[in-house]
Design a protein around this nucleic acid. Structure first.
Lengths: 239, 239
DNA sequence: CATTTGTCGATTGTCGACGATTGACAGTGC
DNA sequence: GCACTGTCAATCGTCGACAATCGACAAATG
């Protein structure tokens, strides 16, 4: 029996392209994205491009000003902090369901994942480490069992990763990052929800303050508008 | 100073119409929504209709199967439970920031809102009570200060309200519902975050179990919208 | 009679085009 | 020189049209 191999539809593929372009820094925050140009680049008409951009907009990676066009979302440090806050909200809540639903097999997979993090850290492959770090936390959400929360986590992860792509290297010490997951594993082994929450809280607090600090120091994103547009607000009488 | 009165763009207006149609029960869960029909009803072309439906899809009220079309999202009890779980996640997390950021004026507004709930309950206007109930919880999120969480709450509220619209009457006793907010207010007065979390947890647990119970009993939306073909408009002209 | 195949109607995905609106720029008057 | 105004290019929002695809139904096949 042959499965209908789901070839992604056009808008999704375009969205992936844009996503990758953002991740690779080809499209910088605040930069304008014109439908027509993207359409010709993709070799399609504007219709699917529009859908792709709207999709990304719903995921928070693109913003659109009515009758002005689409722009790559630029985060300031405050917005980033809010997103991290939401992430913490989800993960801490998830911790409760996690300890009750987690099987021994799950635990083993999680342990293996942390080992992977350590290996990548030791080898200095921090780019991949970031990806696998998110994969670890995604596992936690997955085991938690609320598919809705999982979907939201995915969305947030995409945003944060795109935000992080800007600052390049994220953590000073990849080995330290990997090791910071140990207490989480330990709490999981004991199936101690309270402990787990505490460890996660600390873990996420460290990560967020770190990234946000870099973001504040790096003034690369506050106001960067090229195509001769006061992007922030059209209303000229903004006083 | 004249404000640029934001006349909503076409897709948003169409989305509102669809939203209202769902809320009024004109569009039932699982029902198909064809672009062309909606377009002619709205007197527009299919393009803005498509955008509107995609918008609603991103908000979870519409689902689309590629090359099959759009359908009104039908919840089963499990999905509803997941959404309530997420809502609890947000509100409990928000409680922490809430007690530290809330001003006395905020508290007064909240108290007034509960009074309104009681009035509406006593007069049996439960439809409006539901709206004002959400407004109360929205205030909590607003005061909490995380705009991202607030946006998410709005989205969830829309979904839940549309899901609730199905079951019609929600609470057996509107007066009891209004009164169930008193402990929350009390915890807020004391600015006791722990207590507030506990009260909110109980409050939300009651609400969710209640609604979900009704949902389970009411087989109005049994299971999967079937792929087959809910083509009901069919004056089937056999040839 | 059960199963497969072919055809048809209905609907979506995509396209190119047109009008409308925005911001930029030059010209005018003071 | 500065503010205002009219024009212009760029781009978005919307439209109607076409081909591709899906489900339903009937005919064909064993």
């Amino acid at each position: 029996m042959f499965r209908v191999l789901e070839q992604a539809d056009l808008p999704s593929r375009i969205a992936d392209q844009v996503l990758q372009a953002i991740g690779d820094g080809l499209l910088r925050p605040g930069e304008r994205v014109t439908e027509a140009r993207l359409a010709t680049q993709m070799g399609t008409s504007r219709a699917p491009v529009r859908e792709a951009l709207r999709l990304l907009e719903s995921q928070g990676l693109i913003v659109s000003h009515p009758r002005r066009g689409f722009f790559v979302k630029s985060y300031n440090a405050d917005e980033l902090a809010e997103t991290y806050d939401l992430r913490q909200c989800l993960e801490l809540h998830n911790a409760e369901a996690l300890v009750t639903r987690m099987t021994d097999a799950d635990l083993q997979r999680l342990e293996a994942q942390v080992e992977l993090l350590k290996t990548l850290g030791a080898e200095g492959r921090s780019q991949e480490q970031v990806v696998e770090d998110y994969a670890f936390h995604r596992m936690l959400c997955e085991i938690g069992g609320n598919s809705r929360i999982l979907r939201l986590f995915d969305q947030i992860a995409t945003e944060l990763r795109s935000g992080i792509a800007l600052v390049g290297r994220i953590y000073d010490d990849p080995v330290e990052l990997a090791r910071s997951h140990d207490p989480i594993i330990e709490a999981l082994r004991r199936r101690d929800a309270t402990r787990l929450r505490e460890e996660l809280r600390e873990h996420l607090r460290d990560a967020s303050t770190h990234v946000i600090d870099i973001y504040r120091k790096w003034p690369g994103t506050p106001q960067e508008e090229l195509p001769g547009h006061p992007l922030e607000d059209g209303p000229k009488a903004a006083r």
